[in-house]
């Protein structure tokens, strides 16, 4: 099997996922369908590897993404044969498969009912409770999903994935302080994740843009988060993009801000000169990144992000001309 199958498929570009799934029937034919760990034949045939089963799982997810339900079903069958239907991870995978083939909301609700049955029997089944939350989100029951997630993180507070999901759900509800709290929990688990720093900066920026009295505090914090994310990862496009947005906003609001009362718990607002210099740096760096990625000099930037950065730069340029 190809190497891209050994990574989780969530971040594969659609073209690669499609290619994988188109090759799925061939791949499935080429790998032995039954591998028993107890047969004598393991003495002379190649031993099964953990990678094989990861590949099956990823192949199944890719197939579901592209709508090849037959191959996905075959993967699931082989996994079930090997690990048994009672395996927690397989229960979640089977649920995922059923969600994918469900025709309407009624069928989805039925899957939800199954999840709840499983969880009633065994509340410590983490994969299935995560699926249940994801399904609640799919069904549009955001508040219920938030409640369920809160219970989940109460019993498993070291799960970064769950905290990040909770933060996203809170953002959709406009509950920024809660979202910030959840993302800070993620940072406590992975303190050097620059994408999380940038994401937290984005949420702080959103919270600062709502226009209440503490807006500038949020904006300053957001600016510093973006700075930190760039510090952790040079040339991080999202970080510079956010830095430019935050400094733009601060440059308009800082001059008329009253000199804030100095309290011990929060950092003081950055002075105007620093913000200006940061804005210049961000602009220069962004234009450099855009130029280099448009000319094809450096790969690896997301196309949409580069286009957005270009749009931001252009809007800033017209403003200064005016």
């Amino acid at each position: 099997m190809s190497s891209s199958l050994s990574h989780p498929p969530a971040h594969l570009p659609p073209s690669v996922a499609l290619q994988l799934s188109q090759q799925a029937p061939v791949t499935l034919r080429n790998t032995p369908s039954v591998i028993s760990s107890y047969s004598l034949s393991t003495l002379w045939s190649a031993a099964e590897t953990p990678e094989l089963w990861t590949e099956y799982e990823n192949l199944m997810l890719s197939c579901l993404r592209t709508g090849d339900e037959q191959s996905a079903g075959q993967c699931l069958e082989r996994l079930t044969e090997r690990f048994g239907a009672e395996n927690e991870r397989l229960m979640a995978l089977r649920g995922l498969f059923q969600e994918a083939i469900a025709k309407d909301d009624a069928a989805l609700k039925q899957v939800l009912g199954e999840y709840e049955n499983i969880l009633a029997k065994d509340p410590s089944n983490m994969p299935v409770s995560k699926r249940r939350i994801a399904l609640l989100k799919t069904l549009g029951k955001t508040t219920e999903a938030i409640t369920a997630l809160n219970e989940f993180v109460d019993s498993s507070p070291t799960d970064a994935e769950a905290w990040a999901e909770l933060a996203d759900l809170y953002v959709t509800q406009g509950m920024y302080p809660q979202a910030i709290f959840a993302l800070e929990e993620v940072l406590l688990i992975t303190p050097y994740a620059w994408n999380i720093h940038a994401r937290l900066g984005e949420i702080l920026f959103m919270a600062g843009s709502t226009g209440d009295s503490s807006g500038d505090k949020y904006l300053a914090e957001s600016l510093r988060r973006f700075c930190r994310s760039i510090e952790l990862c040079d040339d991080y496009l999202r970080g510079y993009y956010g830095l430019k947005l935050a400094t733009n906003k601060l440059l308009t609001s800082l001059p008329q801000a009253s000199r804030q009362s100095k309290s011990d718990s929060t950092l003081p607002l950055p002075d105007l000169k620093t913000v200006e210099r940061l804005n210049e740096t961000a602009t220069a760096k962004l234009s450099e990144i855009v130029r280099r990625s448009v000319s094809g000099e450096c790969e690896g930037y997301d196309k949409g992000e580069v286009i957005a950065a270009k749009a931001l730069l252009d809007s800033g340029a017209t403003k200064t001309i005016r």
Partner: peptide, 8 residues
């Protein structure tokens, strides 16, 4: 984050 902008 204290002083991160200067460091940057």
């Amino acid at each position: 984050l204290a002083g991160v902008e200067q460091r940057l």
